[in-house]
Design a binder for these strands. Structure first.
Lengths: 371, 371
DNA sequence: CTGAAAGCGCTAACAC
DNA sequence: GTGTTAGCGCTTTCAG
């Protein structure tokens, strides 16, 4: 049934080890031999047995993707985006991805690791005090974290530079003349749980606001239409001179424009809006929102590249059709003084869409638009 | 470093095979022996080596999840939903999930299968003429398809009963007195590609419309705000007496209410809306839409259960905390006359939200609401 | 540059 | 009810 390396060897008139070395490239093989072997492999449609390989070679060519399962700050579209990017990049390096959901504590992670099922791990949605970090540290398996824990414990981290994102939003609005801004944030609980990215964003916003002489009012938001509407009504009554919003909350962002219209404020004529979050949420609304995307794809790709670098010296990807050969972590990285060893923080990029414009001196509540 | 079965055996004063049999339960072990062995396993923190196991036992306890990668009709939130459900259910059966993206053709699927890396496959987002189906059929690996291909070739299929979903929408509207309905469908291309689910929905809608004396106008829709707005403006001008919409298009659904408001029609006072698609899209709008959800979770769970049934006689799940013991494919199944062997079509469930109400005899275009 | 052979850690007959 | 043993298919010394 299953073709073995011995059959290939016989068919090519060589020994099994030669076939193995042709495949691994771990020792020089003469051109003619190599060709005969490859021909036999093709003809017999040989596929090496992964288990045998793992047993003998102590490497599986599989990376584990540790997913959040319970209360994740990560929203669904992003999750899918991450997985795609990670899977595609991993395959570029000849690796497959094993899904590790930690429903039952961290059993699946520990089992897979100790059972020699994976060569390394990528852990998604890492929070500030994430118990999983200590687990993998103890397991001693090469791991890259997506997110920034308080104690990386020597593990590599990859994330969006949320502080810079916050600053960038304020800059954009300040450049347009806005001086009074509301920051619609994550649900209260997220700040209490110290998720990290939420605080970093807030800090960035506040810092740059001070810098630019912008007044910022921070309001956590539960998301959904009614919560968002209520929040906005209150805060706009409180601060009538607000001319712009920064929103770091996907499920609020999609409603903002509608809510504002209902309050009789046009976007961007009366109020400008900048979002931080999944592109899908920003693009799909009316008007589409100027936003800073969480670059799930780039983050996933970088995470895998970083992991591969750890897996065995600078091995290069198997030239995946369409994937660049990863000439180092240059793209969009704001590595800062940490250099290699510090977290890899991707520089945020602001996409200007239709929701931001110059500030009005007075914010005139008008009748809703009819077109 | 890694504890082996032999070390456990020595520590417990038994042979390796006994340890193996304690773990697999494939032969009776006396109570005292079993206990000693389990104690040793715990004390030494033994984790069987997956590769060795796969090699000797010819089973990996891993299922492959074949994901769409390119032009998928499936939208992101659903994808994530599927994966979670599948992964969680699989772990309930003691299996892990290997992600198989078919970017480079079907190489990853073939490699993983022939390489003995997976015991079975779940294939997502299967279309009517899906080339992957023939591939897995030829590979001869146990596979469950999510979606209905034209030629299942003996493979098991699981899907939502989209025809029934279409009928259910029409019934709901007809019951409310609506007689003139627009069906906002998938993008034109989807119908041309014969994706299957799109046609089945359309058929269901048209059939039941005939049955109930409802007039239906079908319009494919590209999605997004402007396309949706344009489409609606045209069709409402054409058919002024329309009082309800059925929308089978996530990226149009989220805009419908807003667009209608902009046309001066209130939902549901002037126009009722029923959606078929991801719950998230329906729930998040204002007003939230009455809808039939694609039950990603249930579909994923059923797919895995069906696969497990194929993997080796009726093996039972390892009593996962909180997962029901799968007493057969009863829940919500409209198995029909096919019984076991035919596709498992889940019965659609309509969730009434705020977007549907009784039909008005005349559809009076009014001024937009100010609240 | 190539072969022979010793395991990797486990499962599943086959013995008793 | 338990122990012995022969591989599973591959990688990698060690020889040549």
């Amino acid at each position: 049934m299953a073709t073995t390396i011995m059959e290939v060897a016989r068919h090519a008139g060589v020994s099994a080890s030669t076939v193995s070395y042709v495949l691994s490239g771990k020792r020089p093989i003469s051109q003619p031999t190599r060709e005969r072997v490859l021909a036999s492999i093709a003809e017999l449609d040989y596929h090496p047995h992964a288990g045998a390989r793992a047993l003998a070679g102590n490497r599986t060519q599989v990376i584990g993707l540790v997913m959040p399962v319970g209360s994740s700050g990560l929203h669904r579209p992003l999750l899918a985006e991450f997985m795609m990017a990670i899977s595609v990049t991993a395959r570029g390096y000849g690796h497959n991805v094993l899904l590790l959901t930690d429903q039952e504590g961290q059993r699946s992670v520990v089992d897979a690791t100790r059972g020699g099922q994976v060569d390394g791990l990528v852990m998604m949605d890492v929070t500030l005090h994430d118990p999983r970090v200590e687990t993998v540290r103890r397991l001693g398996i090469p791991t890259v974290l997506i997110g920034l824990p308080a104690e990386p414990g020597g593990l590599e981290c990859v994330d969006l530079d949320f502080a810079a994102a916050g600053r960038l939003c304020v800059d954009h609005l300040a450049d347009l003349g806005h001086r009074e801004v509301v920051f619609v944030g994550q649900p209260e609980e997220v700040y209490r749980r110290q998720t990290g990215f939420a605080e970093r964003t807030l800090t960035g916003v506040l810092d740059q606001a001070r810098e630019r002489g912008v007044r910022v009012t921070h309001r956590p938001c539960e998301g959904g239409w009614s919560a968002t509407a209520g929040l906005l009504a209150r805060v706009l009554a409180e601060r009538p001179s607000v001319t712009a919003l920064v929103v770091h909350n996907e499920s609020a962002a999609s409603h903002l424009a509608g809510v504002l219209r209902n309050c009789g404020r046009a976007v961007p004529e009366d109020v400008s809006v900048v979002a931080i979050g999944a592109d899908a949420a920003a693009e799909s609304g009316e008007p589409p929102l100027t936003s800073i995307a969480v670059p799930a794809q780039r983050l996933g790709t970088h995470a895998v590249q970083a992991l591969m670098a750890h897996l065995e010296g600078p091995r290069r990807p198997a030239a995946p059709p369409g994937a660049r050969p990863a000439p180092g972590p240059s793209p969009g990285a704001g590595a800062g003084p940490d250099g290699p060893g510090g977290p890899l923080l991707l520089r945020p990029e602001l996409t200007v869409r239709a929701s931001t414009g110059p500030a009005r001196s007075a914010p005139p509540p008008r009748a809703p638009r009819h077109g």
